[in-house]
Design a protein around this nucleic acid. Structure first.
Ligand code: FES
Ligand code: FES
Lengths: 147, 147
DNA sequence: ATAAAAAGGACCTTTTCGGTCTTATTGACA
DNA sequence: TGTCAATAAGACCGAAAAGGTCCTTTTTAT
């Protein structure tokens, strides 16, 4: 179906939520899953893997929760998506050179490579400080319009 | 996993095979599936749907087979992929406006829309006459190198 | 000690993928 | 007219992935 997984989407929404908090603030899963409308248990699992991958800092025990481990500007959309889905390749043939015996003949190969490169580049240009910024702008616009 | 389906790949390889034949030449499934290393029965099914979608012309009975129905230059990669996978949208939220209640707030939405637009544009710029052309070039290069 | 959090992992249902197989049709040709 | 070579149509299937749930363990603030 060629669609990003829900897991990635949830991960991104969750991280964005954290990026919008005051720096270093610990939020807990319940709050985030409610705010972002993501199933609690699922989000918990997602945050576990994001923690293992080094994007989040987790604190256990009462008052515990999650916060970003890195500067939002240091985390790109691509990073998060790859953390969730593994390395992205549009096509089996792109996974490792040599997988496809037709490499040297098949002209579609080059198209995939180029399309993928552009796509990844675009995603890697988008970091969470930018996302947070534009989320704030959007929220403001909505508020202003309501007045 | 964010990968194009094999179905699309096979479809593209099959169409490319046809695009490389002299115009109007009828090829049969057996020949194509052997040349492109695609399971015969599967390719047959794929060609059925490509026929229904108007990309191929099919001829039944002895000596029957398939040929392109349109000028190769009139068929783009995007056309074929969409024929196989349905309309592409990177994200559930992009399928129809209004699906996602967070449209007006979520900043990721715009990123998806843009990324998708670029991706689709790229694929729609690649038609089968170009592909055939570069396939011929590649084949020639391989042959020359073998000398 | 208690309770509030995350960590870890087993398990589960539904959907999609990537096919196969069987049974029609169709039509060229002997 | 019968036979055979081809596609058409569609039922069916196993494996994998998506998208979760649930339960137990560990940590830790109070
Ligand atoms: S089929 Fe492998 S690169 Fe085209
Ligand atoms: S969550 Fe729907 S657009 Fe971002």
């Amino acid at each position: 179906m060629f669609r990003l997984s829900r897991g990635s989407e949830y991960a991104i929404r969750g991280m964005l939520h954290l990026a919008l908090q005051p720096q270093g603030k610990i939020s807990f899963i319940d709050e985030i899953s409610a705010a972002q409308k993501v199933p609690r248990a699922y989000l918990a699992k997602i945050f576990q893997t994001l923690t293992k991958k080094g994007f989040l800092r987790s604190v256990r025990g009462p008052g515990g929760g999650f916060a970003l481990r890195k500067d939002p500007a240091e985390i790109t959309l691509l990073d998060v998506i790859e953390a969730m889905e593994g390395e992205i390749s549009l096509n089996e043939c792109l996974i490792h050179a040599g997988y496809c015996e037709m490499d040297s003949i098949c002209p579609v190969h080059d198209i995939w490579r180029e399309a993928q490169a552009r796509f990844l580049e675009f995603l890697s240009e988008c970091d969470f400080s930018k996302l947070a910024e534009s989320a704030r702008l959007k929220a403001k616009r909505v508020k202003d319009a309501a007045k």
